[in-house]
Design a binder for these strands. Structure first.
Lengths: 118, 118
DNA sequence: TGCGATACATCGAACCGCAAGGTATTATGA
DNA sequence: TCATAATACCTTGCGGTTCGATGTATCGCA
């Protein structure tokens, strides 16, 4: 085997994925996202604000999210929602994750070798 | 919320998990593991030797693996197999992964909020 | 005899996620 | 009333993983 291609950091970008998914369902602000992930995964996943905010900024910079300022009860919030580009991004990440999870699951539960490709 | 607990690097240790799983099924050596992961996941996951060897060394150092030298066709190979401690480790990692994957899958496919805990 | 595959190994760079810290406002409650 | 907790935003340094490149040596085959 001369070509040695591996996958660049195949595990990364899960916070990205979750955030995009949440925002596709519903407009949300940073602090709310932190809690939403905590609640909806029943504490299995708990990302802090130090993860969420940088991701939001990066995604907006890349055009996957758009934001609008809104003041509620004297509290200034920045609501984010996905753009069409973000929606496409979500679809890609989502599929990649599904493939990955399936592959791992298969290794964990599955038996021996895959049949050799003919 | 004063207590801000998150999960320490929840995505890491997948190579560990896969390697332990392979070795539980069958004694293998490093170079073989690299290809086995490649083959059995149908190239969805491709970890290089630079990932596998350090993990093997670390796991052995921690007592999760044991090794024996063996020469086949004039080629010196180091075969690894899991110890009881390694088996326990595998069980833990495996369960953690399953929970994680389930939580993410639920967010990706699921609808809205989880019902509030009564 | 020279190239590709086998088989081991290490190291630096890159990257990500985490904890911790910082600001400011509003609500709670002692 | 005055500290504390919760809301809401944000940045930065650290640590740990993973990746890619590189190195060595042997074997088989053309």
């Amino acid at each position: 085997m001369t070509a040695r291609e591996t996958n660049p950091n195949f595990m990364n970008g899960v916070p990205q994925l979750l955030i995009l998914r949440l925002l596709q369902q519903e407009e949300m602000y940073g602090y709310e996202i932190v809690q939403a992930i905590h609640n909806r995964t029943e504490s299995v996943i708990a990302v802090g604000e130090g993860v969420v905010y940088p991701v939001l900024h990066a995604l907006e910079r890349e055009g996957a999210l758009k934001s609008r300022r809104k003041t509620v009860n004297g509290r200034s919030r920045i609501y984010y929602s996905v753009t069409p580009a973000g929606s496409r991004r979500l679809a890609n990440l989502s599929e990649a994750w599904t493939n990955l999870a399936a592959a791992i699951q298969k290794m964990l539960t599955g038996g021996q070798n895959v049949e050799a490709i003919p």
